[in-house]
Design a protein around this nucleic acid. Structure first.
Length: 359
DNA sequence: AAAGCGGGGGA
DNA sequence: TCCCCAGCTTT
Protein backbone atom coordinates (compact mmCIF):
# COMPACT_ATOMS: atom_id res chain seq x y z
CA UNK A 1 0.00 0.00 0.00
CA UNK A 2 1.63 3.19 -1.13
CA UNK A 3 0.54 6.57 0.09
CA UNK A 4 -1.55 8.52 -2.45
CA UNK A 5 0.19 11.37 -4.18
CA UNK A 6 -0.41 14.61 -2.29
CA UNK A 7 -2.77 16.03 -4.91
CA UNK A 8 -4.91 12.89 -4.98
CA UNK A 9 -5.09 12.83 -1.21
CA UNK A 10 -6.14 16.45 -1.07
CA UNK A 11 -8.83 15.81 -3.67
CA UNK A 12 -10.23 12.87 -1.75
CA UNK A 13 -10.29 14.75 1.53
CA UNK A 14 -11.84 17.87 0.04
CA UNK A 15 -14.52 15.99 -1.90
CA UNK A 16 -15.36 13.79 1.07
CA UNK A 17 -15.72 16.82 3.28
CA UNK A 18 -17.77 18.64 0.64
CA UNK A 19 -20.16 15.71 0.19
CA UNK A 20 -20.82 15.67 3.90
CA UNK A 21 -20.91 19.38 4.71
CA UNK A 22 -21.86 21.39 1.67
CA UNK A 23 -24.55 24.00 2.12
CA UNK A 24 -27.93 23.42 0.55
CA UNK A 25 -27.88 26.35 -1.90
CA UNK A 26 -30.75 26.73 -4.37
CA UNK A 27 -28.56 26.64 -7.49
CA UNK A 28 -26.97 23.42 -6.31
CA UNK A 29 -30.33 21.71 -6.60
CA UNK A 30 -30.47 22.67 -10.25
CA UNK A 31 -26.93 22.94 -11.63
CA UNK A 32 -27.87 23.96 -15.15
CA UNK A 33 -25.68 26.51 -16.90
CA UNK A 34 -27.96 29.55 -16.66
CA UNK A 35 -28.85 29.21 -12.94
CA UNK A 36 -25.21 28.56 -12.12
CA UNK A 37 -23.99 31.51 -14.18
CA UNK A 38 -26.48 33.84 -12.54
CA UNK A 39 -25.43 32.64 -9.09
CA UNK A 40 -21.75 33.16 -9.85
CA UNK A 41 -22.29 36.72 -11.04
CA UNK A 42 -24.46 37.61 -8.07
CA UNK A 43 -21.94 36.15 -5.65
CA UNK A 44 -19.05 38.24 -6.96
CA UNK A 45 -17.77 40.24 -3.97
CA UNK A 46 -21.04 39.38 -2.26
CA UNK A 47 -21.85 36.92 0.51
CA UNK A 48 -23.82 33.91 -0.61
CA UNK A 49 -26.60 34.56 1.90
CA UNK A 50 -27.09 38.05 0.53
CA UNK A 51 -27.38 36.82 -3.05
CA UNK A 52 -29.94 34.05 -2.48
CA UNK A 53 -33.17 36.12 -2.41
CA UNK A 54 -32.04 38.08 -5.44
CA UNK A 55 -31.20 34.86 -7.31
CA UNK A 56 -34.70 33.50 -6.60
CA UNK A 57 -36.37 36.64 -7.92
CA UNK A 58 -34.21 36.68 -11.03
CA UNK A 59 -34.81 33.02 -11.81
CA UNK A 60 -38.55 33.56 -11.47
CA UNK A 61 -38.46 36.66 -13.68
CA UNK A 62 -35.87 35.48 -16.22
CA UNK A 63 -35.85 31.67 -16.46
CA UNK A 64 -33.57 31.69 -19.53
CA UNK A 65 -30.87 33.97 -20.97
CA UNK A 66 -33.33 34.93 -23.71
CA UNK A 67 -35.77 36.22 -21.09
CA UNK A 68 -33.10 38.45 -19.59
CA UNK A 69 -31.91 39.55 -23.02
CA UNK A 70 -35.41 40.70 -23.93
CA UNK A 71 -36.04 42.63 -20.72
CA UNK A 72 -35.49 46.40 -20.45
CA UNK A 73 -32.43 47.33 -18.41
CA UNK A 74 -34.57 49.45 -16.11
CA UNK A 75 -36.53 46.40 -15.00
CA UNK A 76 -33.34 44.41 -14.48
CA UNK A 77 -31.82 47.14 -12.34
CA UNK A 78 -35.05 47.37 -10.39
CA UNK A 79 -34.61 43.75 -9.35
CA UNK A 80 -30.87 44.17 -8.78
CA UNK A 81 -31.21 47.32 -6.65
CA UNK A 82 -29.62 46.77 -3.26
CA UNK A 83 -27.22 44.06 -4.35
CA UNK A 84 -24.50 46.51 -5.47
CA UNK A 85 -21.92 46.56 -8.25
CA UNK A 86 -24.51 47.39 -10.86
CA UNK A 87 -22.11 46.87 -13.76
CA UNK A 88 -22.69 43.17 -13.08
CA UNK A 89 -26.34 43.54 -14.05
CA UNK A 90 -25.56 45.66 -17.09
CA UNK A 91 -22.89 43.23 -18.26
CA UNK A 92 -25.08 40.20 -17.68
CA UNK A 93 -27.83 41.83 -19.72
CA UNK A 94 -25.39 42.42 -22.58
CA UNK A 95 -23.96 38.91 -22.21
CA UNK A 96 -27.43 37.36 -22.42
CA UNK A 97 -27.98 39.25 -25.65
CA UNK A 98 -24.65 37.95 -26.92
CA UNK A 99 -25.73 34.40 -26.03
CA UNK A 100 -28.90 34.84 -28.04
CA UNK A 101 -27.08 36.35 -31.01
CA UNK A 102 -24.07 34.04 -31.08
CA UNK A 103 -25.29 30.79 -29.56
CA UNK A 104 -29.00 30.60 -30.21
CA UNK A 105 -29.85 31.34 -26.58
CA UNK A 106 -27.92 28.42 -25.07
CA UNK A 107 -25.00 29.01 -22.72
CA UNK A 108 -22.03 27.75 -24.77
CA UNK A 109 -20.36 24.54 -23.61
CA UNK A 110 -17.00 26.00 -24.55
CA UNK A 111 -14.63 27.93 -22.25
CA UNK A 112 -13.31 30.07 -25.08
CA UNK A 113 -16.76 31.19 -26.21
CA UNK A 114 -18.11 31.59 -22.69
CA UNK A 115 -15.10 33.55 -21.53
CA UNK A 116 -15.61 36.03 -24.37
CA UNK A 117 -18.98 37.13 -22.99
CA UNK A 118 -19.43 40.48 -21.28
CA UNK A 119 -18.59 40.42 -17.60
CA UNK A 120 -17.15 36.89 -17.65
CA UNK A 121 -13.60 36.90 -16.27
CA UNK A 122 -11.25 34.12 -15.36
CA UNK A 123 -13.06 33.16 -12.19
CA UNK A 124 -16.57 33.07 -13.63
CA UNK A 125 -15.41 31.16 -16.69
CA UNK A 126 -13.80 28.45 -14.56
CA UNK A 127 -16.70 28.25 -12.13
CA UNK A 128 -19.51 27.95 -14.68
CA UNK A 129 -17.60 25.72 -17.08
CA UNK A 130 -16.55 23.30 -14.33
CA UNK A 131 -19.82 23.23 -12.38
CA UNK A 132 -22.26 23.14 -15.27
CA UNK A 133 -20.25 21.27 -17.92
CA UNK A 134 -17.47 19.43 -16.08
CA UNK A 135 -14.54 21.21 -17.69
CA UNK A 136 -11.33 20.84 -15.72
CA UNK A 137 -10.77 24.54 -15.13
CA UNK A 138 -9.88 26.20 -11.81
CA UNK A 139 -12.02 28.91 -10.20
CA UNK A 140 -10.11 30.95 -7.65
CA UNK A 141 -12.11 33.40 -5.57
CA UNK A 142 -11.12 35.15 -2.36
CA UNK A 143 -11.88 32.02 -0.34
CA UNK A 144 -9.69 29.85 -2.55
CA UNK A 145 -6.84 32.34 -2.33
CA UNK A 146 -6.96 32.10 1.45
CA UNK A 147 -7.18 28.30 1.49
CA UNK A 148 -4.30 27.84 -0.94
CA UNK A 149 -2.08 30.47 0.66
CA UNK A 150 -2.48 28.69 3.96
CA UNK A 151 -2.18 25.17 2.59
CA UNK A 152 1.11 26.00 0.87
CA UNK A 153 2.14 28.71 3.32
CA UNK A 154 2.48 31.32 0.60
CA UNK A 155 3.72 34.39 2.44
CA UNK A 156 3.87 36.86 -0.44
CA UNK A 157 1.12 39.33 -1.31
CA UNK A 158 -1.29 37.25 -3.44
CA UNK A 159 -2.43 40.19 -5.60
CA UNK A 160 0.47 40.77 -7.99
CA UNK A 161 -0.08 38.74 -11.17
CA UNK A 162 3.12 36.84 -10.62
CA UNK A 163 1.97 35.49 -7.26
CA UNK A 164 -1.60 35.11 -8.39
CA UNK A 165 -0.36 32.81 -11.11
CA UNK A 166 1.21 30.51 -8.53
CA UNK A 167 -2.14 30.19 -6.77
CA UNK A 168 -4.07 29.55 -10.00
CA UNK A 169 -1.60 26.89 -11.05
CA UNK A 170 -2.01 25.11 -7.74
CA UNK A 171 -5.79 25.25 -8.13
CA UNK A 172 -5.50 23.99 -11.70
CA UNK A 173 -3.52 20.96 -10.54
CA UNK A 174 -6.11 20.21 -7.86
CA UNK A 175 -9.09 20.26 -10.24
CA UNK A 176 -7.34 18.35 -13.03
CA UNK A 177 -9.12 15.16 -12.09
CA UNK A 178 -12.61 13.84 -11.39
CA UNK A 179 -15.45 16.18 -10.34
CA UNK A 180 -13.71 19.48 -11.07
CA UNK A 181 -16.86 21.52 -10.36
CA UNK A 182 -17.33 19.96 -6.94
CA UNK A 183 -13.65 20.39 -6.18
CA UNK A 184 -13.77 24.08 -7.02
CA UNK A 185 -16.81 24.46 -4.82
CA UNK A 186 -15.23 22.41 -2.04
CA UNK A 187 -12.23 24.74 -1.87
CA UNK A 188 -14.42 27.84 -1.85
CA UNK A 189 -16.84 26.33 0.65
CA UNK A 190 -13.99 25.39 2.95
CA UNK A 191 -12.76 28.97 2.86
CA UNK A 192 -16.23 30.33 3.49
CA UNK A 193 -17.20 28.07 6.38
CA UNK A 194 -14.04 26.66 8.01
CA UNK A 195 -10.87 28.34 6.80
CA UNK A 196 -12.17 31.80 7.69
CA UNK A 197 -10.08 34.98 7.64
CA UNK A 198 -9.89 35.23 11.43
CA UNK A 199 -9.80 32.26 13.79
CA UNK A 200 -10.07 29.44 11.24
CA UNK A 201 -11.66 26.25 12.59
CA UNK A 202 -8.70 24.00 11.88
CA UNK A 203 -10.16 21.21 14.03
CA UNK A 204 -12.94 20.85 11.46
CA UNK A 205 -10.68 21.04 8.42
CA UNK A 206 -10.25 17.90 6.32
CA UNK A 207 -6.75 18.90 5.23
CA UNK A 208 -5.47 20.41 8.47
CA UNK A 209 -2.72 17.78 8.71
CA UNK A 210 -1.50 18.88 5.27
CA UNK A 211 -1.61 22.61 5.95
CA UNK A 212 1.84 24.20 6.05
CA UNK A 213 0.55 27.41 7.60
CA UNK A 214 -1.01 25.49 10.46
CA UNK A 215 2.11 23.41 10.94
CA UNK A 216 3.98 26.67 11.40
CA UNK A 217 1.20 28.22 13.50
CA UNK A 218 0.77 31.18 11.15
CA UNK A 219 -2.63 30.42 9.63
CA UNK A 220 -4.28 33.60 10.93
CA UNK A 221 -1.60 35.74 9.36
CA UNK A 222 -2.17 34.40 5.84
CA UNK A 223 -2.79 35.56 3.27
CA UNK A 224 -0.98 38.82 3.91
CA UNK A 225 -3.36 41.74 3.55
CA UNK A 226 -2.49 44.93 1.70
CA UNK A 227 -2.84 48.14 3.68
CA UNK A 228 -5.97 49.96 2.61
CA UNK A 229 -6.31 53.64 1.98
CA UNK A 230 -8.72 55.94 3.75
CA UNK A 231 -11.99 56.71 2.02
CA UNK A 232 -12.53 60.37 1.30
CA UNK A 233 -15.82 62.05 2.21
CA UNK A 234 -17.71 64.04 -0.43
CA UNK A 235 -20.73 66.24 0.16
CA UNK A 236 -23.91 65.97 -1.87
CA UNK A 237 -26.85 68.34 -1.79
CA UNK A 238 -30.22 66.79 -2.60
CA UNK A 239 -33.81 67.97 -2.91
CA UNK A 240 -37.11 66.43 -1.92
CA UNK A 241 -39.50 67.92 -4.48
CA UNK A 242 -43.19 67.01 -4.78
CA UNK A 243 -45.38 67.98 -7.69
CA UNK A 244 -49.05 69.05 -7.45
CA UNK A 245 -50.16 65.42 -7.12
CA UNK A 246 -47.74 64.67 -4.28
CA UNK A 247 -45.44 62.72 -6.57
CA UNK A 248 -41.71 62.85 -5.88
CA UNK A 249 -39.22 63.95 -8.53
CA UNK A 250 -36.40 61.52 -9.29
CA UNK A 251 -33.70 61.32 -11.93
CA UNK A 252 -32.09 58.32 -13.56
CA UNK A 253 -28.30 58.38 -13.46
CA UNK A 254 -26.19 57.83 -16.56
CA UNK A 255 -25.74 54.17 -17.45
CA UNK A 256 -22.02 54.09 -16.73
CA UNK A 257 -20.17 54.85 -13.55
CA UNK A 258 -21.25 55.05 -9.93
CA UNK A 259 -24.79 53.71 -9.37
CA UNK A 260 -25.18 53.67 -13.15
CA UNK A 261 -28.77 53.46 -14.36
CA UNK A 262 -30.32 53.80 -10.89
CA UNK A 263 -32.89 56.40 -9.84
CA UNK A 264 -32.20 59.02 -7.19
CA UNK A 265 -33.21 62.38 -5.76
CA UNK A 266 -32.21 65.53 -7.65
CA UNK A 267 -28.71 66.18 -6.32
CA UNK A 268 -25.40 67.84 -7.07
CA UNK A 269 -21.87 67.65 -5.70
CA UNK A 270 -21.01 70.49 -3.35
CA UNK A 271 -18.09 71.47 -1.16
CA UNK A 272 -20.36 71.35 1.90
CA UNK A 273 -24.03 71.60 2.99
CA UNK A 274 -24.65 74.26 0.38
CA UNK A 275 -28.43 74.41 -0.16
CA UNK A 276 -28.43 77.18 -2.77
CA UNK A 277 -26.45 74.87 -5.08
CA UNK A 278 -29.80 73.20 -5.87
CA UNK A 279 -30.70 76.25 -7.96
CA UNK A 280 -28.39 74.87 -10.65
CA UNK A 281 -31.06 72.19 -11.16
CA UNK A 282 -33.78 74.82 -11.61
CA UNK A 283 -35.11 74.20 -8.07
CA UNK A 284 -35.88 76.63 -5.27
CA UNK A 285 -34.90 75.05 -1.94
CA UNK A 286 -36.64 76.02 1.28
CA UNK A 287 -33.54 77.30 3.05
CA UNK A 288 -35.46 78.04 6.23
CA UNK A 289 -35.82 74.31 6.75
CA UNK A 290 -33.11 72.27 8.43
CA UNK A 291 -31.51 69.89 5.95
CA UNK A 292 -31.77 66.18 6.68
CA UNK A 293 -28.31 64.63 6.51
CA UNK A 294 -27.48 60.96 5.89
CA UNK A 295 -24.22 59.20 5.14
CA UNK A 296 -23.67 56.42 2.65
CA UNK A 297 -20.39 54.58 2.26
CA UNK A 298 -19.07 53.09 -0.95
CA UNK A 299 -15.95 51.05 -1.46
CA UNK A 300 -13.76 54.03 -2.23
CA UNK A 301 -15.63 57.07 -0.85
CA UNK A 302 -18.34 58.27 1.50
CA UNK A 303 -21.20 60.53 0.51
CA UNK A 304 -22.63 62.93 3.08
CA UNK A 305 -26.01 63.82 1.62
CA UNK A 306 -27.83 66.96 2.82
CA UNK A 307 -31.48 67.06 1.72
CA UNK A 308 -33.72 70.13 1.61
CA UNK A 309 -37.36 70.37 0.67
CA UNK A 310 -37.66 72.31 -2.57
CA UNK A 311 -40.11 73.48 -5.23
CA UNK A 312 -40.05 73.46 -8.99
CA UNK A 313 -39.24 70.83 -11.59
CA UNK A 314 -35.64 69.66 -11.96
CA UNK A 315 -33.78 70.15 -15.23
CA UNK A 316 -30.27 69.42 -16.47
CA UNK A 317 -27.75 68.00 -14.05
CA UNK A 318 -25.98 64.68 -14.35
CA UNK A 319 -29.05 62.57 -15.11
CA UNK A 320 -30.60 61.13 -18.26
CA UNK A 321 -34.29 61.31 -17.37
CA UNK A 322 -36.34 63.30 -14.85
CA UNK A 323 -39.69 61.88 -13.72
CA UNK A 324 -42.09 62.24 -10.81
CA UNK A 325 -43.26 59.06 -9.09
CA UNK A 326 -46.07 58.31 -6.68
CA UNK A 327 -44.81 56.85 -3.42
CA UNK A 328 -46.37 53.52 -4.26
CA UNK A 329 -44.18 53.26 -7.35
CA UNK A 330 -40.91 53.64 -5.48
CA UNK A 331 -40.37 50.04 -4.32
CA UNK A 332 -38.94 47.98 -7.12
CA UNK A 333 -37.96 51.07 -9.06
CA UNK A 334 -34.21 50.68 -8.85
CA UNK A 335 -33.62 53.39 -6.29
CA UNK A 336 -30.02 54.07 -5.28
CA UNK A 337 -28.93 53.35 -1.72
CA UNK A 338 -28.13 56.96 -0.80
CA UNK A 339 -31.50 58.22 -2.05
CA UNK A 340 -33.33 55.39 -0.33
CA UNK A 341 -31.65 56.40 2.91
CA UNK A 342 -32.40 60.10 2.37
CA UNK A 343 -36.06 59.45 1.56
CA UNK A 344 -36.53 57.38 4.70
CA UNK A 345 -34.81 60.03 6.81
CA UNK A 346 -37.21 62.60 5.35
CA UNK A 347 -40.17 60.53 6.53
CA UNK A 348 -41.15 58.84 3.27
CA UNK A 349 -42.37 55.38 4.15
CA UNK A 350 -40.52 52.72 2.15
CA UNK A 351 -40.21 49.00 2.79
CA UNK A 352 -36.76 47.65 3.51
CA UNK A 353 -35.25 45.93 0.52
CA UNK A 354 -34.68 42.66 2.21
CA UNK A 355 -38.38 42.37 2.89
CA UNK A 356 -39.44 44.21 -0.22
CA UNK A 357 -39.41 41.21 -2.53
CA UNK A 358 -41.71 38.27 -2.25
CA UNK A 359 -40.24 34.89 -1.36
C1' DA B 1 -0.19 48.31 -11.32
C1' DA B 2 -3.85 50.85 -9.61
C1' DA B 3 -8.30 52.51 -9.33
C1' DG B 4 -13.41 52.37 -9.78
C1' DC B 5 -17.32 49.98 -8.49
C1' DG B 6 -22.11 48.58 -3.34
C1' DG B 7 -23.76 47.00 0.34
C1' DG B 8 -24.03 44.28 4.31
C1' DG B 9 -22.65 41.10 8.07
C1' DG B 10 -19.63 39.94 11.67
C1' DA B 11 -15.65 40.54 14.85
C1' DT C 1 -14.68 50.74 13.63
C1' DC C 2 -12.57 47.73 10.24
C1' DC C 3 -12.51 43.70 7.37
C1' DC C 4 -13.98 41.11 3.60
C1' DC C 5 -17.06 38.85 0.69
C1' DA C 6 -18.10 32.61 -5.28
C1' DG C 7 -14.45 39.78 -9.23
C1' DC C 8 -14.48 42.48 -13.58
C1' DT C 9 -13.24 46.44 -16.21
C1' DT C 10 -10.80 50.52 -17.33
C1' DT C 11 -6.90 53.52 -17.18
Amino acid sequence: MSEPAPVALLRDRLLGWYDAHRRDLPWRRDPRPWPVWLSEVMCQQTRVDSAIPYWRRFMAAFPTPADLAAAPLDRILGLWAGLGYYARARNLHAAAQQVVARHGGAVPDDPQAFGALKGVGRYTRGAVMSIAFGHRLPAVDGNAVRVICRLDRLTDDPRPPRNKEVIWRRAAALVDGPRPGDLNQAIMELGATVCSPKSPACLLCPVADRCLARAAGVQQALPVKPKRKKRRTAHRVAALVRDGEGRIWLGRRPTDGLLGGLWGLPAVDAPGPDGPALRTLGLEPDLDAEPVTVEHGFTHLVWRVHTWPARGAPTGGEVEVWRAFAEGELPGLGLSGPSLKALRACGVNLPHRRGAGRR
